[in-house]
Write a protein that binds this DNA or RNA. Structure first.
Lengths: 340, 340
DNA sequence: TTGAAAGCGCTAACAG
DNA sequence: CTGTTAGCGCTTTCAA
């Protein structure tokens, strides 16, 4: 009873290199070579092997290959969440590069929880991925050491202000905040407010708000007020908080939002309440999502290259053997919206 | 030169069961048992092993485990795309169940291309996943056989009208289309149009349109016209096609859209052009995305349970040993928007 | 250009 | 309760 499909039809059972080798009348290693397109294979051998492999619909077992090679074609991707359009776009970008190389993302979500992130990373690393993509630059202490043990490339996305473990690709959030402040100030707004959400769990938004505040201060028109909702970002929350902030501070003539979902909510509120945008109230979002381009008044926003960030992260991962660690500052720009 | 970390400090190198066993002065299998929380382990042994494991910051190698077990803690997840909010939500739902079980999704994107899907599935299956989640019910011929070889559970999401390979969870798209037709007819609309996009690559939207057309016919008010853009869905495309369709067919008093991105575009166009919604023009979307709830006129839409669909898919996968194959019809409902 | 041998790290099956 | 043995399927030497 030799384990696999004997004469008796136990199960469909997956065929192995050995099955193919037996059928083709060659050695296992030859099959292995053919399957991996190794050099120096005669056409005759290749044909025999391919015929046998096809007739058994053989698929290589990557698990065994990875065990032998100590490395796989998996890439660990650790993101905080899937619940706004930012990370799906990044993931899309990552996959757009990986898939062409026969690589695959194994996904872990941290939900903005450090301990959860640690746990997820530990599990993903146990698959000997060929690389790992993390979100942000701040991670629990053991993480860099764990990655170093595997000696695989790391790319951190979103943020570039800090000390990366390996490579990093993102934007400067403080520069974006400064650009936002300068832009709004330049448009003549002097009573500026800020709206965020989800208790600023994504620490990048906190960094942005602080840099924004500091810049406004320096420009001589300090932030009037900021309102950080405990709820997750959504257009509805944006609408509600905009109404609330204006009620508390009627002098506010402009609001900078932590993201476009909130900003769109602000815009919808203004449209519904008959508030003149951008005259009576200016609105500036963050990210530059597609929908904002189609609103009755196109949303002004800081456009961030989310898809491209994913692509670049994957590229850096793949090229890191040659290029070493790189910090890549992707540019943002202020969209030509009409709300501020 | 025994491969691993000898006296000479070659590399940090990942520690193995054997290293832990040596350090703890026990056998490898004992370490294995402790790591997997096997029953009948003395506290003394456990303590020794854990101490050694911690001091080496040992992490089990799942690749080896999977090879031995012929099965992993990976779940293959094959989706068409990440570029609208539907599939990220589904993925979020899937992960919300998997992560609590220590399982992880390996992602493959088909980009609505059958051949690409086949290739991706083949690669993912080569990782001996413990299960696989596919999108839709139509797949290239070899796929069911490939999955059968591994003898793992399959769950197909989105659609339930057809013959699933294993379990299926989704909604009845024809029922949704009929509900849409009845609803719009019931609201008094008689000159109804339809707008879709991306050449209807997602065949579910085509099925919906056809059922919608058939129902309108049966109701005695045949579809006036439909316009299918070649571009991907977006609010901008929705705005443009809405304008175009109304120009070609000024009598149209209502439009059913393939999804909310398009419908929002339609709404924005109407708001900007001063068209009275829902009086002069009714709008009905599909999916019920969050943003539609916050627009100046809340978007009427067929709400689909995307997150829940992901959760249910993961649950079915996990329970399939006991429960066998199940077809689960998740309900949709028409949201209480104000655009139709 | 092809093959034989050995072993990646882990765990099921069987002792003891 | 703990240990010994064998082998998962593949691929890297090394040899022919």
């Amino acid at each position: 009873m030799s384990g696999r499909s004997d004469i008796k039809g136990d199960k469909p059972a997956r065929s192995t290199l050995r099955d193919v080798a037996l059928l083709a009348g060659v050695s296992e290693i030859s099959v292995s070579r053919v399957m991996r397109d190794a050099p120096n294979i005669s056409d005759k051998l290749r044909d025999k092997v391919m015929a046998a492999a096809n007739s058994l619909s053989y698929t290589p077992n990557r698990v065994a290959g990875a065990l032998k090679n100590q490395s796989s074609n998996l890439v660990a991707v650790v993101l905080p969440s899937m619940s706004n359009e930012v990370f799906p776009s990044v993931l899309d970008g990552i996959e757009s590069i990986l898939n062409d190389q026969g690589l695959h993302a194994v996904l872990g979500l941290s939900e903005y929880d450090r301990d959860r992130e640690l746990k997820v990373i530990r599990e993903l690393l146990s698959w000997s991925p060929m690389g790992i993509i993390l979100t942000g630059l701040h991670h629990l202490d053991p993480i860099p050491g764990m990655i170093a043990q595997l000696d695989i490339p790391v790319v951190q996305i979103m943020d570039i202000e800090g000390a990366p473990i390996g490579s990093a690709v993102g934007i400067s959030h403080s520069a974006a905040a400064i650009a936002a402040a300068d832009y709004l100030h330049g448009r003549g707004y002097r009573k500026i407010g800020y709206i965020g959400a989800w208790s600023e769990k994504p620490q990048r938004s906190k960094a942005r708000r602080r840099a924004f505040e500091a810049r406004l201060q320096a420009l001589g028109c300090p932030l009037v007020a900021s309102l950080i909702s405990e709820d997750r970002s959504s257009a509805m929350v944006g609408a509600q908080t905009t109404a609330a902030l204006r009620q508390q501070h009627p002098e506010i003539d402009c609001i900078f939002y932590a993201n476009d979902d909130l900003a769109l909510g602000g815009l919808f509120h203004a449209l519904a309440a008959g508030i003149d945008v951008p005259g009576e109230l200016g609105l500036l979002g963050f990210n530059g999502i597609d929908i904002g381009k189609a609103t009755p008044i196109p949303l002004s926003s800081i456009e961030t290259p989310r898809f491209e960030m994913g692509r670049e992260a994957a590229r850096l991962l793949l090229s890191s053997r040659e290029s070493g660690n790189v910090i890549k500052d992707l540019s943002f720009k202020i969209s030509d919206g009409k709300t501020a």
